[in-house]
Design a protein around this nucleic acid. Structure first.
Lengths: 337, 337
DNA sequence: CCAGGGTGTGCGACCGGTTGCACAAGCGCT
DNA sequence: AGCGCTTGTGCAACCGGTCGCACACCCTGG
């Protein structure tokens, strides 16, 4: 391995001068700097990250914790991809951990081992106890989504409210009268926020037929089961908390012999790629995962730069109207939320 | 941050003794070791990875390079998940890079920066030029799949041959006579291997109607387009090189008003979750991605342990027969390849 | 001719671990 | 008492960078 000492020797300077020359310290003369850079390139010098990290306390590596269950779906891949890409744009690397039901020992140990500059955390339900440990560790942390009941947490989240309002409005326009919902899991902020808009649009909690509210766990299967159960109460539309549940619901409705959207409408959330690939294309809400990743990384960089207090960013989402709720007209149209 | 020096001071020993005590060096007396461990735990001591890496040359971190296009599908998520989990089982962390069309500068630099103990590389086509640079870097490397024309590379691959033979046999049993294929991209080893079995099963290259062979790029869209084109030549079955292409083909066939599997059969490869979720459940080949990840990590560990020469592992895959090719009987059955 | 200031470079400590080697203490033996 | 061996511990160097500070040199002005 070529070290800084090698570069210094070959360019007849000291390690300190070589170091400064390579990072563009203005105190080094043009002539010397050029010489050092030339030698470094010729030798194929690559700074050793471990050594630099030890010396500066900065590694340029971010941690990313993702619930392992998310990795069973495209959503997880998109999230990982978004954060990795965003980090790369700032010359940062990403270390990945999957969180199973409980925080593995590995997460705790490695997270607080000094190699990580900051941490992006995605969690399914708020207030998972191990989160507090991370947030209190002093390491810059940013959550994906508005999770956590704590007021001192930073997050990069999707705006669930605005687009869901647009969605409910669209359903009303389509003349759906008995709208049911398969909401996401209790405690998950995205699920709660989307559901709160559902309640609001239905005229308040006391106006809602409890039989038209089912709780799923964001999985296809839970959507299927919930839809099958909801059918007994005769809804003419089902608002699902995400796309996989909507697709599960579609399958259940088809199995029951219902036509979509004539007999019953269905909507999803997230606009995963498959939502546009099934036989009845799904009305859903699109959001820009890459933007969320970028915001998360930027928040971390700000925090590392010394910004105090929580930093919070919300990225917009937009309603995408497709066949599955369009009974008045066959044309697809898209509306921005 | 609690350092080893703190632990040593509090337990009235030296840094060296504390270090040895914590890693179970037998030369340290039971009494001292216990005392050090107690203090370390009380103080919440966590060894600094950067410092240890610098001293030992081992970081316990593996690199994982995945084509960014894979991250658009579940396949990428599963791969990342498999490798990360496998690494975690050996107390290793994983750093992730996405490779776009060409190797980003970041990959090259960070890969050879000394923080990575070894590298798992997934590539779409063999002989991408930047691969050689990695393979020759001296860093332990393992490829996912039998890619690369070089004979000195290690890999963890799926056995494409055996299961594809079983698939072709099954199709013959079902009485399909004009079997077409949508193969994966030229140069991709999985695609080539699966296609070679197709050719073999059809009785050799000279027996094949060139009109019944289409080339896709593993994407849903390419499957749709290819199937639409193939239809003009009247196939009664389409063998797709992976599941997304099979699902795209299904969509095209439905759009053409064909019944599946009565009018035309369709098979996929990979058994992604969605293959079992569409209205016509897909005959496909299942393989254990987690096993591939485990093999890859074990190969790296062996190489790090000093084993010379390429290490190669192949994990089995099994045929899963579902509705999309079952025209003789409505029952699903599964056959091991 | 010398004080004062600016410019460019290098010494050496430091980050937090690991490890070769020297050494001290305790023991049994002759 | 003296020798050699075992056992346990600590000094100090080292990994490869970064950076505070001292210093050498040159130029300028009084």
């Amino acid at each position: 391995m070529v070290t800084l000492a090698d570069v210094a020797r070959m360019s007849a300077t000291s390690r300190s001068t070589a170091s400064r020359a390579l990072k563009g310290d203005p105190r080094i003369s043009e002539e010397t700097a050029d010489r050092v850079r030339l030698v470094a390139k010729a030798l194929g010098y690559r700074p050793n990250v471990a050594a630099r990290t030890l010396a500066t306390g900065r590694s340029g590596i971010f941690g990313l914790i993702v619930p392992s269950s998310l990795m069973d779906d495209v959503y997880g891949a998109q999230l990982v991809s978004a954060v990795t890409t965003a980090a790369g744009e700032h010359d940062g690397g990403v270390m990945l951990w999957l969180s199973h039901d409980r925080p593995s020992r590995a997460i705790r140990e490695t997270v607080s081992n000094g190699i990580i500059d900051g941490l992006v955390v995605s969690i399914l339900a708020q207030n998972e106890p191990w989160i507090d440990e991370l947030l209190d560790s002093g390491l810059p942390c940013v959550l994906i989504g508005r999770h956590s009941s704590r007021t001192d947490t930073s997050y990069a989240a999707i705006d669930n409210i605005t687009a869901t309002r647009a969605l409910m409005e669209h359903l009303r326009d389509q003349g759906y009268m008995r709208v049911a919902t398969i909401r996401g899991p209790i405690g998950n902020t995205d699920a709660e926020e989307r559901h709160s808009v559902f309640i609001e649009a239905m005229g308040g909690a006391d106006q809602i037929d409890a039989n038209l509210v089912a709780v799923g766990d964001f999985s296809y299967e839970s959507g299927y089961d919930a839809a099958a159960a909801l059918l007994r109460h005769g809804p003419d539309c089902i608002v699902a908390g995400n796309d996989p549940m909507a697709m599960g619901a579609l399958a259940a409705l088809r199995a029951a012999g219902l036509r979509i959207p004539e007999d019953i409408g269905v909507s999803g959330w997230d606009d995963v790629r498959d939502a546009n690939r099934i036989d009845v294309r799904l009305t859903t809400v699109h959001h820009d995962m890459a933007a969320v990743g970028r915001e998360a990384v930027e928040i971390l960089l700000k925090q590392m730069g010394g910004v105090q207090g929580p930093i919070r960013r919300t990225v917009p989402a937009s309603l995408v109207i497709r066949e599955s709720t369009l009974r008045t007209s066959g044309n697809e149209k898209e509306a921005k939320a």
